[in-house]
């Protein structure tokens, strides 16, 4: 079953975008397909999950607010080229987790504002570009108050003549003491005409903080390819397996269990075109 069919099924609560306030816990995740505008508020103490699926070229603006102690997990999946701007504001002790999967040229800009003491956010993502794709993943995390935690791990793979860009910024306001922030960008360029541009940045105005960031750009590991071929796998299969292994942990941490398998399948299909 395709992801589109899946999120239209009984396991999900479909809505058409626009404004929505979640005021009760719900085990069924919300699902919205190709929204152009989305305003979601998760009320105090409420836990919920959301799937945003992009299946056709589109522009989206999303405003998400988490009231104190709210918890939201989002799977944001781009199967078509989309310009997206996602703005998240979090109050005290709220928890927000994003898993982003970009399978096409897409320009995705996240702004996470940690506005309440003790809030935390995790933004993990993967983008895969083949052919002439241009994937952009921009993430700004603003630690506006003290005692907040943020972490992000974004993995990129590009092949063909594709370009992948990661632009990351962690901002720590002057009074945001005891901030814990991590940002990692890891990438593989497969082939000579594929390009990765990665710019993780820190802007820190407080002194009692723990912040780290890093970026790596690598090639396919030839030793690993040789090792797998020596066990009988074809070169193409060895390369694909290596990249699958590299990005697989992101999709395996997708907050919606039933999406893991179809996401892995989409990933495999995309990697075959690399």
């Amino acid at each position: 079953m395709s992801i589109s069919e899946l999120v239209c099924g009984d396991g999900f609560r479909r809505f058409e975008g626009g404004r929505i306030t979640v005021s009760d816990d719900t085990s069924r995740p919300f699902a919205v397909v190709d929204p152009s505008k989305l305003e979601l508020t998760v009320e105090s103490g409420v836990k919920c999950r959301l799937v945003i699926l992009h299946t056709q070229p589109n522009e989206m603006t999303a405003r998400i607010g988490l009231e104190p102690d709210a918890e939201l997990s989002v799977a944001d999946i781009y199967l078509a080229s989309t310009f997206a701007e996602v703005d998240v504001r979090q109050k005290e002790r709220s928890v927000c987790r994003f898993t982003t999967v970009e399978m096409q040229s897409a320009n995705v800009v996240y702004g996470m504002s940690l506005d309440g003491v003790g809030a935390s956010c995790t933004s993990d993502g993967v983008f895969i570009g083949s052919g002439d794709d241009h994937c952009v993943f921009e993430l700004t995390v603003r630690h506006n108050v003290s005692d907040c935690t943020s972490s992000s791990l974004v993995k990129g793979v590009v092949g063909g003549r594709a370009t992948g860009e990661f632009r990351g910024l962690v901002y720590v306001a002057p009074d945001a003491q005891r901030t814990d922030a991590q940002q990692q960008s890891r990438n593989i360029e497969s082939g000579n005409d594929a390009h990765i541009i990665t710019k993780p940045q820190l802007e820190i105005y407080a002194d009692d903080v723990r912040c780290s960031h890093g970026a790596t750009v690598g090639q396919i590991d030839d030793d690993a390819v040789f090792y797998m071929r020596q066990r009988g796998l074809s070169e193409a299969e060895a390369r694909r397996l290596q990249i699958e292994g590299f990005v697989g942990d992101i999709t395996m941490h997708c907050p919606v269990e039933s999406l893991k398998e179809p996401l892995t399948d989409i990933l495999k299909t995309k990697l075959e075109k690399l």
Partner: peptide
């Protein structure tokens, strides 16, 4: 080619076996 030699039954035990992140032993085998 390398993989064909392996399939024919030529096995190399590596001095420095290579780590392959995210690929399970079971799946690989």
């Amino acid at each position: 080619p390398v993989e064909e030699r392996a399939r024919m039954g030529l096995f190399l035990g590596f001095q420095y076996p290579v780590e392959i992140a995210g690929v399970s032993m079971a799946n690989f085998m």
